[in-house]
Amino acid sequence: MKYKDYYATLGVPIDADLDQIKKAYRKLARTHHPDMSKAADAESRFKEVAEAYATLKDPEKRAAYDELGRHPAGEEFSPPPQWQRDAASDVPSFDEADLADFLARMGRGHMGGYAHEPRSRRGRDYEAAIQISLEDALSGKTVNLSLNEGHDTKTLEVTIPPGVAQGQKLRLRGKGAKGHNGGENGDLYLHITLAPHPVFRTDGHDLYFDLALAPWEAALGKDIQVPTLDGAVMLTVPAGTQTGRKLRLRGRGLQDGKGGRGHLYAVVHIAMPATLTARERELYTQLSQVSTFNPRASATKEQNHASHAT
């Protein structure tokens, strides 16, 4: 078994008290925690630090560790015979075993010379993430998940029901690691994200897309064919539609998992032709001469109010 220098890992002297150990751990945890650090080795560094702390904060484990004496880190050493006897039933190969496994077992009452019945233990939970398309979110999808179980990878077929939204979390009971000695199986926690769609954006179970209108279409109104996840449908654009208006297609969003569906919204923006033909320019000129519409009327009014106020 390889020796690990837990005091050096935390950077504390061997006679450090619990407060010093805790403080040193928290500082290192803050630096190396994978949520805080972007470094490639953050996770492994954090694990080392957490392993050292798990032993040194516990007086019983710390005493057992101290009994091993001091060795250079990484040096092969032979643990006390009592450890080997206690471990015989649980650890298949003592030489390959990790120091942390033995010390962790102490906390579960496995060591210290007491006879024990095999305790039932719940299996570990699994966490998995998957990305699916909006179409699959609408209709549901059967996927094969690859899960790491120790050194093995197992594949699990999961049917994702319709009704998922962006960031949806699901729990599959009993699909985690197997329980020990009659303990329950763990659960599988599945985090689902929706792949970006070229047309639609999601907000909960509602969908949004951009609908470009020519100025005359917005002014006069028009029936326009628009995309939905169920295929194209006709949408009536009312006369006088403004940029930013949201036109709703009821029940054309995602399944809400409660038997209904969200809505689909067309977000209008009025597009101008980049260049005008001579005839178009002539018609716009005519329009500008006859129209009494002032798009800045309300802004002008507000400005007048403001200037009166000062």
Binding site: P161, P162, L170, G174, G257
Partner: peptide, 11 residues
């Protein structure tokens, strides 16, 4: 509506 499998929960 598709029934939710009995061993599955929305979180």
């Amino acid at each position: 509506m598709h029934p939710m499998p009995p061993d599955m929960n929305w979180l």
